[in-house]
């Protein structure tokens, strides 16, 4: 298991997966506040001549809360996209290209292989979510004002991170089922966004992982009473996805063409 984790870390570093993901978070964390403060108003002004400062503020949001919520939203939408296609090869490629054949013949357990992937990339994403939220807090604080409490920012960063662990598990499960990297990326996004919309439409967000994203973008001083429930359901879903992955791996035919 330790060796599996070491291997995944090596992969993350040498294939620049960590770098890509980290830059993805940084990009939105740093650029979003700058865009809202300087660039968007200019664009709006040129599009709608004579627009008042107040109307602008209402449309774009000038508080730290508005900016950080927008950041959370961007990470959920575009960030998920980057993550899905950066990590879609995580296991699908290994199955497709038979690189798992020798490890398995040498006695590597499926659980170890799968858990190592989820632990390494899940932790990385959790960390990047947290760092991203803090940098975004810093930037939006300088440009607007520090109205949010740092605790709620840390909490939101962590909640988003837990959601990202769920996303990683989703990638691994679809990879094992479909065995094709690009299709894995699309299915992951389809199921992640699908759950989000279902949650929104039926108002059952607090029973779904997408509830974490909603909660995170509120930056509430006191978290919703349903948060614990959302968290435990998410952990439950993660465990179910891992179980499905392992069952599927156990029945797999290896070394196919």
């Amino acid at each position: 298991m330790i060796q599996d984790i070491k291997k995944e870390i090596l992969y993350g570093l040498r294939s620049y997966r960590f770098l890509i993901l980290f830059v993805g978070f940084l990009f939105f964390a740093m650029l979003d506040p700058v865009m809202t403060k300087f660039i968007m108003p200019e664009i709006m002004k040129s599009q709608v001549p004579g627009i008042t400062q107040e109307a602008l503020g209402q449309m774009l949001g000038t508080s730290q809360l508005a900016v950080m919520s927008a950041y959370m939203n961007d990470i959920f939408q575009i960030g998920s996209l980057i993550i899905a296609f950066t990590l879609c090869r995580l296991i699908a490629q290994e199955i497709r290209e038979n690189t798992l054949v020798l490890p398995i013949c040498s006695g590597k357990q499926f659980a170890g292989i799968v858990l190592a992937k989820i632990i390494v990339f899940g932790t990385a994403l959790l960390l990047f979510s947290l760092i991203g939220a803090l940098i975004n807090y810093l930037y939006s604080g300088i440009l607007f004002s520090y109205d949010l409490s740092i605790i709620s920012v840390v909490r939101s960063g962590l909640l988003q991170g837990v959601y990202m662990v769920f996303l990683t598990t989703l990638i691994v499960m679809w990879g094992v089922i479909i065995k094709k990297p690009i299709a894995t990326g699309f299915l992951t996004l389809a199921s992640a966004f699908g759950l989000y919309f279902i949650g929104g439409a039926l108002q059952i967000d607090s029973y779904l992982p997408s509830g974490l994203i909603k909660e995170a973008s509120l930056f509430a001083v006191i978290p919703a009473s349903t948060l614990l429930q959302t968290l435990s359901i998410t952990v439950g879903i993660i465990l179910v996805l891992i179980a499905v992955t392992l069952i599927r791996l156990k029945k797999m035919e290896w070394n196919e063409r």
Binding site: K7, L10, Y11, R14, S15, E97, N98, T99, V101, L102, C105, N255
Partner: peptide
């Protein structure tokens, strides 16, 4: 001990 016909390895290792 098994040697597959076309052994595949991690290219980055």
């Amino acid at each position: 001990g098994y040697l597959p016909e076309d052994p595949k390895f991690y290219p980055w290792m």
